[in-house]
């Protein structure tokens, strides 16, 4: 039952998205322009700054993620469908998980483009350890999206929601950014220290578990008037 609702919400979002691809295109293009801005600002005489690639990758993910989160729920609000979604005889956490999965898929798609772009523009050997990189990106994205989806859903009814989303989201997701940047940075080092990577990935997994649990637990009271 739970999985079915999750699937229905996810499929609904994808059906709407596939018709226009509005969010996908704008988010991807925004992420690319973000990386390009960093390249213009930081690459001098063809040389990328030491250790900058990891940070730039994660900043681009965080910025694009914020944009996508805002847009997803803006669509629900404009069409007045959020109320319908919440009125449906379905478990609220299932609605949340459905939305969350949609965001995660979108962000992972953006990362598929971002990683080669950053590797190219900043001469970073990002593909040296693909499994580790995938693991870091996945856990980091889940953590960021878990908090972001809940906040974006909460803010749908608030005034000045566009500004408030990053204001609320970034202080809370600082551990994700630190862990993601440090782990990716460790991957880019000449000699990869597996112990360091394990600690950071473990931290990201803990963050994911704690914040997913909290979000599932608070989604119900937060979305009730």
């Amino acid at each position: 039952m739970f999985a079915q609702i999750v699937w229905l919400v996810l499929r609904k979002d994808f059906t709407i998205e596939v018709r226009s691809l509005e969010i996908a295109y704008t988010t991807l293009f925004f992420a690319i322009s973000c990386v390009l801005v960093f390249a213009f600002a930081l690459v001098q005489e063809g040389r990328a700054p030491e250790g900058g690639a990891a940070g730039i990758l994660w900043i681009a993910i965080a910025f694009a993620g914020t944009l996508a989160l805002g847009r997803t729920f803006e669509r629900e609000r404009q069409a007045e469908t959020l109320r319908a979604l919440l009125l449906a005889p379905a478990a609220r956490p299932a609605v949340y998980v459905g939305k969350l999965l949609g965001i995660i898929v979108l962000l992972l798609a953006a990362e598929v483009i971002l990683v080669p772009l950053v590797a190219l523009l900043f001469q970073a050997p990002l593909f040296a350890h693909p499994v580790w990189l995938a693991l870091i990106l996945l856990t980091g994205t889940v953590g960021f999206a878990a908090v972001g989806t809940l906040f974006a859903a909460m803010l749908v009814r608030a005034r000045s929601r566009d500004v408030l989303l990053p204001v609320l989201l970034y202080p809370i997701t600082v551990p994700v950014i630190i862990a993601g940047v440090r782990a990716t940075g460790a991957l880019l080092a000449p000699e990869v220290d597996a112990g360091v990577l394990q600690v950071w990935v473990a931290l990201l997994v803990c963050f994911d578990v704690v914040f997913l649990t909290l979000a599932l637990w608070t989604f119900e009271p937060l979305m009730t008037d």
Binding site: L150, M154, L155, R159, S160, L222, D225
Partner: peptide, 20 residues
């Protein structure tokens, strides 16, 4: 600046801030 209903949202934020 959150307008009506922001009291609950703020409480949620405080909870997340603590967990953080």
């Amino acid at each position: 600046y959150g307008g009506p209903g922001s009291d609950k949202l703020a409480a949620g934020l405080a909870l997340f801030g603590m967990a953080n």
